[in-house]
Amino acid sequence: MFLSIDTALIIEKLILIVVVVSISLVVAMYTTFAERKVAAVIQDRRGPNRAGPFGLLQPLADGLKLFFKEEIIPNFSSKFLFILGPALAMLTAVMTSAVIPWGDKLHLFGRDISLQIADVNIGILYVFGVVSLGVYGIMIGAWASNNKYSLLGGLRAASQIISYELAMGISLISLLMVTGSLSLKEMVVQQQTGLWNIIYQPLGFLIFLICSFAECNRTPFDLPEAENELIGGYHTEYSSMKLGFYLFSEYINMFVSSVIMATLFFGGYDMPFVNEANLSTNVAAIVGVVALMMKVVFFLFLFMWVRWTIPRFRYDQLMHLGWRILIPLALFNMLVTGAVILFLDR
């Protein structure tokens, strides 16, 4: 594709960026609500049901509460980094959504609008890079707090990301060997015509799933924010909306990694048993977005389901799982994939 930047394209992309960012914020908001509801029903409770019908206004009330809380910056912290931490966490969480294909193209006002902000041909590498940047938000915030518990939380976050990023990367390599492309859009198109990647890479998906739990600091791996031993971990010193940003970025990360998993392994915006070619462009795009969202909702539920089932790892168990089980397993998966591809000469 040659580079053609006209005003309409810029406007189109700007609108798309605003829409995507606000959708991911709203989804993240309601994920916090869903988390509380899922936790409640799993524990035979009712969950929040006071604010609005079925408690649907609860996330708004929570946000409002956080805004009205007193903003405390400890005077022994380094102020600039203290503010930079949550900002960075939020920024990297939102940035990832740029390369995700949310659907096929819409046909509006005589233009084909691709429902992807940037179809970068190294899409998955970009996601990978930005996600690993996300830990800087945690580390910087933890360091700036000048508090031993925060620092320990930050240390844990850093070492956890290093341990699990590796296995995640290797499991991705075997996926890339199958698809032969780094572009997320290209992967989805391949899965639309052929089979979903989960069929080719079940073990790779399992490793990727476990690693994304670790990357999102979700429950079996939520050591950086362990309440009982670290008093909240990296956000011990945080209050008000800065705390809100940290908590919120966790949910955006969850949303984004659900989208990534759906895109990489479960056909992205491909609706199963429906041939998109038979539908008109706009209908196909809408069906695609709905399909993607359904998959995402399932993964978000999985995140919560696991959280309320499995207790937290001990730190040495976490390291053991990362270095001595997942990485060899990912290498083995890569080896087998390579051998099979070579053998079948695809």
Partner: peptide, 16 residues
């Protein structure tokens, strides 16, 4: 197995 146990609790009657 553990996840199935928690899942089955979704359909239980709430005592609240």
């Amino acid at each position: 197995k553990g996840m199935m146990i928690t899942f089955s609790h979704i359909f239980k009657k709430k005592p609240t």
